[in-house]
Structures are given as C-alpha cells and as structure tokens.
Design a binder for these strands. Sequence first.
DNA 1: ATCGATATGAACAAAATATAACAATTTCGA
DNA 2: TCGAAATTGTTATATTTTGTTCATATCGAT
Lengths: 258, 258
Amino acid sequence: MSGALRQSRILDFLNTQGECSVDFLAGQFGVSGMTIRRDLQDLQEAGRVLRTHGGAAPADRVSFEFKFLERGELNEPAKRNIAATATKLVGDARTVMLDSGTTTLALARRLRGHSGISVITTSLPIASELQFCSEIEVILLGGILRNDAPDLAGALTEANLESLRADVAFIGADGIDEKGNVYNGSLAVGRMLGKMAAAARRVYAVADSSKVGRTALMKFGKLAEWDGLITDRGIDRSARAAITAAGGRVIIAAEGEE
Amino acid sequence: MSGALRQSRILDFLNTQGECSVDFLAGQFGVSGMTIRRDLQDLQEAGRVLRTHGGAAPADRVSFEFKFLERGELNEPAKRNIAATATKLVGDARTVMLDSGTTTLALARRLRGHSGISVITTSLPIASELQFCSEIEVILLGGILRNDAPDLAGALTEANLESLRADVAFIGADGIDEKGNVYNGSLAVGRMLGKMAAAARRVYAVADSSKVGRTALMKFGKLAEWDGLITDRGIDRSARAAITAAGGRVIIAAEGEE
DNA sequence: ATCGATATGAACAAAATATAACAATTTCGA
DNA sequence: TCGAAATTGTTATATTTTGTTCATATCGAT
C-alpha cells in the first residue's frame, strides 16, 4: 500500500469513527508508529486532521472535493498564457461568465485580484476557487451534476441563463474548424454553451492550438459572431488565415506571462 | 502485445482493483518493471494515473476542496442518529430535497446506497458526496455562493425551486419554538427554505435538541403544516408536549443506529 | 508542582523503489 | 533483406520510504 493510499484510509478512519490513536492506526496498516506520525504530520500540514497527543482527530471542518479527470496539465504553459491574456480582456467588465475547464479555471484564479465583480459559472472547481474572495460574488448556475466532470448542465442551467446577462463570457472549445465554427463534444453542454454565449455582451473562445482544425459532436457557436478566439502560438498558419478570412478574430496569447 | 494495448489494460486494472504495484503489473504482462514504469510515466503525463512509489493509483483526478468551519461536530452521535432515522423516512421517494448542513450531509452519505433517486440540493458538500454515485442524479440549485458557507441561496435559487417538485424534503432548522415555528438565522436562506418546503410533498425538519426552544431571525415554516421534526432524545419534555399540542409531530431518533 | 508513564521528533540505517545510461531486441518501411 | 527507429531489458546509481533508537517533551495523576 502506498503512502498516499494509506493517508486516504487514515482520513476514512477518522471521519467514520472519530479520534484514533497512533497505535491503533499502526496496527490497522501494519506499519510502525513513526510512519503513522509522518502521515499525520502531512495530513495536518494539509489541514485535514488535527493532531492530538497519541493520535489524531478529524479536522474541525468539513472538507469536500470535486474530482475530475485531468485531461491536460493544468500548468501547461499554453493554458497559463491563454488565461493571462484572457484576464486582460476582462477589462472593466463587472459580470463575467466562465465555462468549466482547466483554462477557465486558471483564468478564475487570476480574477481573485479583481474586486467588485460577479462571476457566473457552471464549474464547481471555479466556485471553489473563488469562494473565499469576499470581493467577488459567485453565482453558480443550477443544473444536473455530470458524472464525469464537476460541472453542471441541463434544462435548469439553460433556464437560468435565460434570466442572466453578463458583460463578457469565456467559453472553452473542444474543437474549432477553419470556418470558425466552435464545437463541443457533448450535446447537452453544447446547447447550454450556446445560451451562455447569447447571454453575454462580449464572448471569447479559449482553446489551446491543438483544438484548432478539429471538430466535435456539436457546433454551438461561430467566431464571426463572437469577439475572438484566444489560443497559443502553436496554431496552424493556414487555419489561422482561414478563420480570419471567415470573419473570426484570432488572439495569440503572449508567452511567459505570469 | 503492443505498448498502447498494455497501457490500456493497465488502466483497466487500476480502475477495477484500485492501486497496483509495478511488480504486479510486470507479472501480469510478463514484462520488466522498467517497461511498466515507462508506461506509467506516459499515462501520468497524459493525466490518466497517479504515480505512487511502488506502483500507481487510479486516482487520476484533480481535486478541489471546499472547506468551511463546521459549527458542530459532524460526528456528534445525535446528528448521526437523526440522519439514520431520516434515511428510513425517505421510504420510496424518488426525488429528495436536502437543505445544506452537517445533518443533511450525514443523510446524503446514507443515500449512497439508494439507487434511482434524484437529489436536489443547495449544498456543495452534498453534491461532492454524491458526485460519483452513478445511480443518483444530483441536481444543484443555482444561486449565489455564500461567503461563509458552501451553499447557495438568493433569487435564482428561489426561482429554480418554483419549477421543481420533490417527494420529500429534509430541512435544517436554526431554531424551533414551542408553537412549532421553524426559524433560520439568515433572511435570504429562510426565504429560500420556505420555497423549498413548498416544493415538496412531504417535509421534515431536522435539528438536534439544542435547537428546540430557541428562535432565530426568520420564521419560515410551521411544523403543523409539515410532516415532522426529527430530533434526538435530549429534547425538553415540556417543549415536546407543546409542539405536539400545537399540531407538530416529533420524531425521536433511535440511538446507536449506524 | 512533581513524578512516572507515554508520546514525539530527530538522526541514522536498511530496504524498497526510481532513474539514467546503455545494450539487446523487435518493428517497419524501403 | 537491410537498416533506422522504436521498444524493451539490464545494470549501476540515486532517491524515497520505512523502521529503530534515543534524547526531549507532554500528559495525567497524585
């Protein structure tokens, strides 16, 4: 059993039966007390348990997690650069809509500096990221929690979008073709994103360059009707030219922006 | 066997039986540990597995945590008993509304066993708790994320409740007086909970006995119009008699139910 | 407050595991 | 068939993890 798994199990024990002694945990896992102490120290530093003399107690807070498959690295430079460029395009908008996704999550992190803005999103991680920013109002759109991703979609989400307006929206794309059509891999999400785009005065697509030139299940928008695509310099030259010719604006994220 | 196929099988192993050691995988495929390590490195870079020392875990997930100060101990026996009793009262309801709070969170954990039900909630921890139960549909009501608690309220939440109906609702109370009036400490949340109660066929209040005999800022319901209050045996005898006389039903949670 | 018992963390040692470099093998296209 | 490229195995060298010992700190009961 790996250390990470053992630590996770220790949390299970603490959460189900309250305080546990080091000796008890050592016996449960067949390891020495020192190992348990080191585990508990890690967990304490992460704020997940409270150390007591002789053992540990569940932290005096409920922590919960939203997990999702990490498609690409959150820290991929391209995504960070795209997020940095997108942040500048927020400008003086007071109301920002954010689609879910790792790029928009990186963008949300950068919004923490801004104050007095409202963020409207379907993404639980984004809501999590901004929950303690007292200067930012987070509005979560209602809807059905998807099984494979921590975000919301469905009829309720769409209905909510009908009654909201934003100054700017940043929407992720699973694919963008040469004509500037924007695609999503899910029918339900694509339909919802179409309404999100319709509810914002300015709309930007965010997508790393690998998405350009690909299509996906559902077309839900057109760059010519939006305000731009923010992507990285890896974009294919001819694809870029074709999109521009079709009326779309392509914004290349500057590199090394932090 | 090709490398790609082997990597795909490795994912199968990890997903079906959890953490696997390098040696185990090497034995399964009849290849050296080095080959497995290279496979795992590829999979890790693709974000599909988590490396651990000695093997890999399927927790190929990024997690985001919501944390909030817990007012009472989640592990307080009274709350667990109340949750256990409430679970039985779900009966054959297909749609369950859950207020946010530690008691309802404990109730949500018990619902994981049920299949084919829909859970409607304003609580992010509850959504988190149920997100991987594929048999349970989680509907998160939209709304404004509160700064001091991981749940939603506001006009959007109330509007969402207008369009939903549930078989049963469990609603936490900050206070319950002798006439069976149910109170909440926040105006916005109280108003929202009034709508939640109106949207359910059966409604139960859940509150540990310390809340009985107290009032709070806003009255939003009346036990006489609901189906009962689930509390623990610590409830004051005269308060219980008064509530019953006023037409409220008091349900005492059995102890030691796990 | 004092004492004995227990818990703790630092330092070190040992075992298990990872990494890098290189050799051997296989694959695939011309 | 040949040879380049990719894949895999082997070996030697780091790195991580775990266990043990021991001086110090902490707790609970007088």
